[in-house]
Simulated scan of single mutants.
Amino acid sequence: MPRHVRGFDVEQALAHLQRRDRRLAGWIRRVGPLEVPPGWRRPFDPVDALARAILFQQLSGKAASTIVGRVEAAIGSARPHADTLGRIDDAGLRACGVSGNKALALRDLARREQAGEIPSTRQMAWMHHDAIVEALVPIRGIGRWTVEMMLMFRLGRPDILPVDDLGIRKGAQRVDGGAAMPTPRELLARGERWGPYRTWASLYLWRIADFAEAGGVKTNRSQD
């Protein structure tokens, strides 16, 4: 397995998509160029990212940020890890606004980190994206979609297509002019022509969905 760098050649990805899919190419011209996700260049800590993903689940960005700030103050660190989370008990987490299920998820994350079950960024660089998904989805509160967002927005893997994402499916429906959104299975088959740059196609599908429904106003995504 070759070493994976964070990010990829977006101009090459764009040319590939425009060459392989005329319908998508038309929308790409309409939407215009995309910005490279800034997370590709930022320092990345998988445990910290997973802890924040857990805390942000099912909350607005403002509410989640408030809770994260309280947790950071309670543990005396901006990095929720096994050692720092050990500084606060479950009652303390609840006082910060963390639900019981999320507290259990954070404890499971910390336990797995201590057991060496969470790959480091260095280890992930040598892992296929499917292997990263397989390693992380056993964590309580972490599903495939959460890992896919990390792969796209933080690790910059080029060939990720989150087929269960509603925005992705809406964008694909808009591209093809369908009466209904494609099912995940249909989207998986539809996306074969976009490989090996399905991540860049996904970013465009989100923007196409925004363009159609929100007048082009960009919707922020997890880990964006």
Rank of each mutant, 00 (worst) to 15 (best):
L55C: 04
W40P: 01
V47Q: 02
L205W: 03
A53K: 00
G26P: 10
D108W: 09
A51K: 01
H128W: 12
H4I: 03
A131E: 14
R20D: 11
I132Q: 01
K218E: 15
S202A: 14
I28H: 03
P184L: 00
G92W: 06
L109D: 05
K218P: 12
H128E: 15
R207C: 07
P33R: 04
Q223F: 15
G100M: 09
E113M: 03
V68G: 05
L203G: 06
G86Y: 12
A135D: 11
R190M: 13
Q58T: 13
R174D: 13
E186I: 04
G61H: 10
P158C: 10
H129D: 15
D45A: 13
L34H: 01
R198D: 08
G216W: 05
T84R: 04
M124W: 06
W194L: 01
R185V: 14
V217E: 15
T219W: 07
F211T: 12
T199W: 02
R157L: 07
A51S: 10
L136H: 06
R6M: 04
A78G: 15
L188R: 15
Y204M: 04
E192A: 12
R140L: 10
R20A: 14
R19L: 12
T219P: 09
Q57I: 03
P184G: 10
S77C: 08
S120A: 11
P46H: 10
R190Y: 11
